[in-house]
Design a protein around this nucleic acid. Sequence first.
DNA 1: TTTTGTTTTAATCATTTGTTTAACTCCTGT
DNA 2: ACAGGAGTTAAACAAATGATTAAAACAAAA
Lengths: 209, 209
Amino acid sequence: MSDKKEKEVDPSTEEKIKNAARALFHQKGYSGTRTRDIAEAAGINLALLNYYFRSKQKLFELVMIEGLLEFVGSITKVFDDSTTTLEEKIRLLASNYIDMLSEQPDMPLFVLSELRSHPDTFLSKMNPQEFLMNSSFIKQYQQSVMEGKIAAIHPLQFIMNLIGMIVFPFIVSPMIKAIGNLDTADYKVLMQQRKTLIPIWIEEMMQVK
Amino acid sequence: MSDKKEKEVDPSTEEKIKNAARALFHQKGYSGTRTRDIAEAAGINLALLNYYFRSKQKLFELVMIEGLLEFVGSITKVFDDSTTTLEEKIRLLASNYIDMLSEQPDMPLFVLSELRSHPDTFLSKMNPQEFLMNSSFIKQYQQSVMEGKIAAIHPLQFIMNLIGMIVFPFIVSPMIKAIGNLDTADYKVLMQQRKTLIPIWIEEMMQVK
DNA sequence: TTTTGTTTTAATCATTTGTTTAACTCCTGT
DNA sequence: ACAGGAGTTAAACAAATGATTAAAACAAAA
């Protein structure tokens, strides 16, 4: 039943492996994950992993790329939409990302960890440089700076603050949970609140003083 | 020349191993680091690793604990000093941490990654909960909230913002460097600027609107 | 039913990797 | 000088681990 032109193979086995792999990679990283663990978690025979994907490395790169694309993709959509204002973009970013991360809370730490080990491998493939610097977001930002509406700080400083406020809490969730004695439900509430809080904070920060 | 009561062994070999181990662990994580790599980086025979430290695991825990203690220690000193104001604490935190992280930029990602894999192992040992919640910092914070000087947001939200603004840029440095086409020197300049910028931003954020 | 191609399985291989062993060197105190 | 202990080394071991193989099970087509 396999079709040569359409790569649409029966999803069950292949997808099961990929899902198990994604979960384990996110949780334990590349070298912390054993192929036998993936096989067991997916409920399949070990050899099937090499049958569907050529190697652990290949499987990893697939999961990694998919994660990065989803990440970058959802940023692109907001950053490049010239019909929304800068303030709306900030609100959308916070909202969309916090929702995404609430479902895959381990993703950012995974991506950033592996990115550190193989810096060029992935960053060169997706070339985030010119995309971001030419985006509608940055243009609107610089426009507002020129008009004196917001304080003149380096765009990268601003980006770090914005993305950091969104992503960082998910990276330190175990620590915050321990400090505040929170369970997962409590924590999710905090994160949801940030969807409305972050845009407010950012606006305050950007005020020309 | 070894002294039984004072554990002060000749630093050369033992320290060489620990330094090499710290660098590699920070860079590649626990399971990504091989004992042979440590030995080679330290310029010592492989067996010496098990001679001085019983196992890779023990060596790892040592490095990890030392890192965490330095991290927490430098926070404690600032947080618990009742002679400084809240604003001064914020300025000191930003300044001290950015200096520390500029020297060990890979430390936070390492600590946070490994913390995720073994959450209880370390967090239970250092019990950050009551220390932080009873600190002078939190008391001053809540005092200011009561007096209506700053906006009433959950202390944890505030902590996440503050620590996030300090630490997050170091976690995403490869990405930021790629986006902004910066070399390491450029990047350090950005980080140094944040020592004065973060306190300003934080103050703006806390304003009651 | 037979045939053909795909999927699955158990067993095995080859390498990596943490650890140990046993010998050897070097220094120090007696 | 030499006995003893600490430091160091090369070699080897045992377990873990990624990958492969050869055969079996299965499904669809002829």
